[in-house]
Nucleic acid binder design. Structure first.
Ligand SMILES: [Mn+2]
Ligand SMILES: [Mn+2]
Ligand SMILES: [Zn+2]
Ligand SMILES: [Zn+2]
Lengths: 137, 137
DNA sequence: TATAATAATTGTAACAATTACAAAAGTGTA
DNA sequence: TACACTTTTGTAATTGTTACAATTATTATA
């Protein structure tokens, strides 16, 4: 429930010794303002308007860095492109197969368990649905 | 729990008017005998030994056909390659980040619900975990 | 401040997974 | 056999991602 703020992020970044360059800041801002699970291409295309020198490699590098630092999550609901989410709290994702929108939904992934996994160390849990959203029905 | 048999599959294929060519048969056999969630490349590389003329396009085409007919499921646990599963019963998948193996585990995906999705039509539910398997710990 | 060391960004090339497409081969029917 | 139809094949094109070396920016040091 606690909102994502620059202050919290800045503290986390300092903890993890990640330098907040101009490009990284812009990418983080973008993720905070556009919580629509954007692709690399969407992030790049939109930011590139105001930062003509931005390189797509920087977008890739930064996202990889943020994911490794557990500040951003990759969503692999579709096999052809990764999507990124600054909201790292437990929640599920559903993709509307008509309009392509990926919606968040509330689900307690922590409570998902299986006796088959007793001897596993579990690091990450993802719940992906596909269907048709209310607007498209 | 009911095992995947050629008989069941053949009936389904007839229902859906999918012609069972030599290539399609071999790919189906492979998926039944190798329930390790193989990639297209693994399927192609292995089958190509006994079928030197096999084309990778045919593997792609056949898998797409089988997925559309709901006889095979795509697993997008990793963003860089699709994996295929002939076991279409509800179950979860966990990928060991050390050895790369994708294990099945028992979980009732049908019972996964969220009040946020009341107005959605839900067609597919996937549960993906990542972690370390008992052998690698 | 100047200099050196380090970190981050950029642009391009390489790579890998997938799709498009047209020609060739196979299948069934009259 | 001739014809229509389906499937397969091989290649080229496309797309998302990574590798890498050169350039630029930042930080530490003298
Ligand atoms: Mn989300
Ligand atoms: Mn499985
Ligand atoms: Zn929709
Ligand atoms: Zn393992």
């Amino acid at each position: 429930m606690n909102a994502i703020t620059f202050e919290n992020l800045e503290r986390e970044l300092k903890n993890k010794k990640i330098n907040l360059s101009h490009q990284r800041l812009k990418i983080l801002e973008y993720l905070i303002e556009n919580q629509t699970h954007p692709t690399v291409d969407q992030i790049y295309t939109d930011l590139q308007i105001d930062m003509p020198t931005l390189s797509k490699t920087t977008v890739y590098n930064t996202l990889k860095l943020l994911v490794k630092a557990d500040l951003v999550k990759v969503i692999t609901i579709e096999d052809n492109e990764a999507r990124y989410d600054i909201n790292i709290e437990n929640h599920g994702h559903i993709k509307c197969e008509s309009c392509g929108t990926i919606y968040d939904f509330n689900i307690d992934t922590d409570s998902l368990i299986s006796s088959d996994l007793e001897d596993f160390k579990i690091d990450e849990k993802s719940v992906y649905f596909k269907g048709i959203c209310p607007r498209c029905r």
